[in-house]
Design a protein around this nucleic acid. Structure first.
Lengths: 319, 319
DNA sequence: CTTGCGAATGAACAAATGTTATGACACGTT
DNA sequence: AACGTGTCATAACATTTGTTCATTCGCAAG
């Protein structure tokens, strides 16, 4: 079959063999021992390749049946907030990172339906979106553009829009555009200067013409926001006093999901929440107790067309 | 949560619990022991429910990465036979039944894209189609009609069109229509009488207006055809002599995929191969050495828009 | 040629999983 | 109340899986 010799060419891991093993194991229900014998290799190797295949998302396990309760929550979310799509997953973890991974994985299916040849996809920031991008199966599409809707964090971080956009674009074989600037500038003036740069203008405009936006929201006491600290404590307290309940597309918003009139919000490089309305599909991937308030505000404002969240959050949103 | 008391209402198996277990096991990577402890039940029970969940297709495991060779074969099939879609799966089994299951499972994904609210779906017969229907995940759709394109076998058999249609319609929450008559009548006259029945006419016409047809093909020496024996040996030899190479929608066809001019073909109740052309999407699910010849004929005649087959068959078709 | 390196192997073991037998318990039936 | 009947818990066991470690193999650099 002349594959064995070639299959290492890419990055030194024998995908061909791994796929074959995965197929035998999961598809045909053979035991690892049998597979090892059949392919003439060691069982340990079979075991390792199998684990690696799962880790890399080549083997993917999904649970199709939903709990009646989740279906019910989905319907109520759609009804209540005028959404076209809603996906509620079981929340069986309290770990923020784990929840992000679960939500990210769950978002793949509904979003894949929107990712088609020629589409432009706007991407926000956050651990959840990063997890989503990682969980996305490799789907080769034609002429797709993935556009970051926000600037980067100063230090490259796995949670910024750039990272999520990069990963997602790789999965879709798409072109990736990012906003070459900090998510938050040091002054309004420098933001204005930066935003006037043709390069930036270009990407911003492209983002505004996106067919679908994949976004998230940050609660104020979330680990992420804390860790970032892109505003200093004094300023943070100041925005808080001004009524901030969360961070949406880099902007601090209040209980009406309105961008708070505060200097810090005029230093943001990125798509403004109010500009979202021009994007036909607006998908939120988010969950967790600390995000409920901000989520509720955004939903009430009908800023979204779709949401992926967990059971607990869904319940809280529907109170 | 008040589920535990209700969850047995349907068919005596605790789907709620099973889904929860599956979620913990596959989604969160917990061990069966841990899950048992967490849910306060027995480990044996956890194990059994998990197995049952897999068996029922609630947990489904898919392999996303394809072998380069398969992708290549798909492209060549599309190119060569003017198909819109092609799916080639690894063939690692020689067992006819197993192959049918593998193909059936593989067909779900490409076909789901065609199953939408309001669609009419025509269904043929065979083990493969039956396997496909079984493998189909439960997808609640609106106003979908599943129509059998062929009459039934005299004894209800798990391979006839009726069975496949019934199962599929259940999965899609669709209405099911079947042709109330034998796939093969005892004489041309009785076929004509039967086909003139309004009930039958109705279903036949409905089948002709289908949006998508899901069909298969029988090789002449396939176990299925043998086992069925709806024609007696003499007649079988006769059709064979007339050039029959396979059975397509109940009709014996020759190497040009033309319905052989033979009495037996005038006793069939069902959609005629030539009527297929009116159906916009025509999907073949089939594979195995004994079907290659018939498949090749059908493909050459451009009767299909999509195919799901295995590697070996694909290779044979492309010679 | 030998030395060193990394990768694959085989043996060995602990952990997890799948399977079976047995007994307790609840439930309708007679 | 006695009697099936079926479900579930418990325990025990065989198999499979995941991991570790010392060893061997292949091969390229010295």
């Amino acid at each position: 079959m002349a594959q064995a010799s070639e299959e290492l060419r890419r990055d030194g891991w024998p995908e061909q063999t791994a796929v074959r093993i995965a197929w035998c194991y999961y598809g045909l229900g053979m035991t690892q021992q049998e597979i090892a014998a059949k392919l003439g290799i060691n069982r340990v190797r079979v075991n390792r390749l199998l684990a690696e295949a799962r880790r890399r998302g080549i083997v993917r396990i999904s649970i199709t049946s939903k709990l009646a309760e989740n279906v019910d929550l989905e319907e109520r979310l759609k009804e209540r907030f005028g959404l076209a799509e809603a996906e509620v997953v079981l929340s069986l973890t309290d770990d923020e990172t784990e929840l992000a991974e679960v939500l990210g994985a769950a978002a793949c299916e509904p979003l894949t339906r929107h990712f088609r040849d020629g589409a432009t996809i706007g991407v926000g920031w956050g651990v959840t979106l990063k997890a989503f991008a990682e969980a996305m199966p490799e789907t080769p599409l034609q002429d797709v553009a993935v556009v970051a809707m926000l600037g980067s964090l100063t230090r490259r971080s796995s949670i910024d829009a750039f990272e999520a956009a990069t990963t997602l674009s790789a999965r879709l074989h798409a072109e990736c555009f990012h906003l070459p600037g900090p998510i938050l500038c040091d002054s309004e003036a420098s933001r204005d200067t930066l935003v006037r740069q043709p390069m930036l203008q270009d990407v911003l405009e492209r983002a505004l013409r996106a067919d679908i936006a994949v976004i998230s929201v940050g609660g104020l006491d979330s680990g992420t926001i804390r860790r970032m600290r892109f505003v200093d404590e004094a300023e943070f307290q100041d925005v808080l006093a001004a009524g901030a309940i969360g961070n949406f597309l880099g902007h601090y918003i209040d209980d009406d999901a309105a961008v708070i009139d505060h200097p810090v919000n005029r230093r943001v490089i990125g798509v403004k929440p109010e500009d979202l309305a021009n994007i036909p599909h607006r998908f939120m991937i988010s969950g967790g107790p600390n995000k409920v308030r901000a989520l509720a505000a955004i939903l009430r404002r009908r800023l979204l067309t779709g949401i992926v969240t967990d059971q607990q959050t869904a319940r809280a949103l529907l109170v």
